[in-house]
Simulated scan of single mutants.
Amino acid sequence: MKKKILFFLLVSGLSFSQQKNLKITDLPPKSEDFTFPKVSYPEKPLIENKINTFLQVNQLEYIPGSKISPSQLVSTGKTSYFNYVYFYGWEKLETPKNILSIAINGEASGAYPEGFDIWKNFDLRTGNLINAKDLFQPNSIKTVENLIQKTIKKKVNDFLTELKSEKNSSEKVLE
């Protein structure tokens, strides 16, 4: 019995320390317009590489190890978006032990600047991106999408009702 408890404590300690060894820092070159996450996971370098490669290719259109700076394409508008993209910050979100969630915020500039927030979730056992399809059964995804659509529609309708109810509406509000 004592051996089983000792074994359990050892395994628990190792699994709970799993995320303690995972660190996220800023991908160089950090600047006022470029603060992008870089994952460091010394115990699992293949998973670290997989997550960093995904994030950099997906968001920066940068291939890690290229001779150019990671921020060069997005900061000069030379990505497939043809816009300047600024990354202002990131945050590691609190999650269960085998999940890594990162929130990234920024702004894309075209004719008008538009802010954005991106959330990416990874399985720390494999390094794979976690999608909605990984979390829900196929028939449940449509239900979740419908709930989100209803919530958005309600928020928009409530906002429009509030605008219409203002007594001294300006021309801009009326538009």
Rank of each mutant, 00 (worst) to 15 (best):
V85M: 14
Q19P: 03
S12I: 13
L46D: 00
S165P: 06
F159M: 08
N21W: 12
S40H: 10
K155E: 12
S12M: 15
D123L: 06
F8G: 11
K92V: 11
N121L: 02
T95C: 09
K23C: 01
L135M: 08
Q19K: 15
K167S: 14
Y62F: 15
K153P: 00
T95E: 13
F7K: 15
Q137H: 10
N52S: 00
L129P: 06
D33P: 04
L10Q: 07
S15D: 01
K23A: 06
K97E: 05
V74Q: 04
I51A: 02
F82H: 12
S31L: 10
K155A: 13
I148G: 04
L14R: 13
L10E: 02
E32W: 11
L174K: 14
S12C: 12
E166M: 10
T79W: 05
L174C: 08
L100S: 06
I47R: 03
T35D: 08
S12H: 00
Q72K: 11
D134V: 08
T53H: 02
L93I: 14
P70N: 02
T161A: 14
V144E: 04
L100Q: 03
A111N: 11
I99S: 06
Q18R: 00
S80Y: 02
S15I: 11
D117Q: 07
G65D: 04
I152W: 05
L22S: 08
I5M: 11
D123P: 03
E171A: 09
N105T: 14
S80H: 00
Q19V: 04
G89W: 04
K155I: 11
S169K: 11
T25G: 15
N146S: 01
N139R: 09
T95D: 06
K3T: 13
F122R: 02
K23R: 02
I152L: 06
S17K: 04
P28W: 00
Q72G: 02
P70Q: 11
K3W: 09
V173N: 09
